[in-house]
């Protein structure tokens, strides 16, 4: 619903205004008030698999933001030339080209990280955020707002991912980015890492709680 409103708003604003209010809104709305993960329910799949440590989480966020910004821009540029019947295949091939690029770059410059993320880099292709934003925004808007929308949603995704990654690494292994942050003294007093946080169920439950906080604070309730 709010997506449709955003579309109408940006369409109405056809003037070449590069950093106007509307543009800013397109960029910053997805950070919290219209977050792609918690409110639009897009892209949860990969959000959870890579978040047991912060380092792969950050790499994943960067990779997704690049792909999303790029795909939104490219699709928006050629949106008038895509026949609507085969648009999904066209979008998928654009996205998978970008993902292949990111994957090759990761393999060349950060091989360990690429091994750690394994299939999840490839799964950016089927990340619902990318196709969802292409379909909902890039197909109906000019390249510049689409680029901002892609960037905004990528960063909004990153916000939630970093929150989940932060919680899981801190409580699950007592460290952040691999550095021990919970002091040894606490362990001596009997503190134990919450092993559940590293396992899949921990991710589901933590994300569920974040969604709760998010909805409570932005007052967007479902019935």
């Amino acid at each position: 619903m709010s997506v449709a409103e955003a579309v109408v708003e940006v369409q109405a604003k056809a003037k070449p205004d590069w950093f106007g209010k509307k543009q800013k809104k397109t960029l910053t709305d997805p950070f919290w008030d219209n977050n792609p993960i918690t409110l639009q329910v897009l892209g949860i799949c990969s959000a959870l698999a890579v978040t047991s440590q912060l380092k792969p989480t950050v790499v994943m966020c960067i990779a997704l933001t690049i792909v999303l910004t790029g795909s939104n821009f490219v699709i928006s540029v050629i949106r008038r030339h895509i026949p609507s019947k085969i648009r999904i295949i066209v979008m998928l091939s654009i996205v998978s080209t970008l993902v292949t690029l990111v994957d090759q770059i990761l393999k060349a410059y950060a091989f360990d990280m690429s091994k750690e993320l394994s299939v999840f880099v490839g799964l950016i292709i089927t990340n619902c955020i990318v196709l969802g934003r292409a379909e909902a925004f890039a197909m109906a808007n000019k390249p510049w707002p689409s680029l901002l929308d892609g960037l905004g949603n990528g960063l909004g995704y990153s916000v939630i991912l970093l929150m989940v990654g932060f919680g899981r690494e801190l409580f699950g292994s007592g460290s952040l980015f691999g550095f021990q942050v919970i002091p040894q003294a606490l362990y001596d007093m009997g503190y134990v890492n919450v092993g559940l946080m590293v396992l899949p169920p921990g991710a589901f439950i933590l994300l569920g709680l974040i969604i709760w906080v998010q909805k409570q604070s932005s007052k967007q309730f479902e019935e």
Partner: peptide, 23 residues
């Protein structure tokens, strides 16, 4: 269910419990 938890929130929590069961 508490208002903020309805829909997606509670579904994620239940999925977590299901995952726990499957473990």
């Amino acid at each position: 269910i508490p208002h903020g938890l309805r829909g997606l929130g509670i579904t994620m929590l239940i999925t977590g419990l299901m995952a726990l069961g499957f473990m």
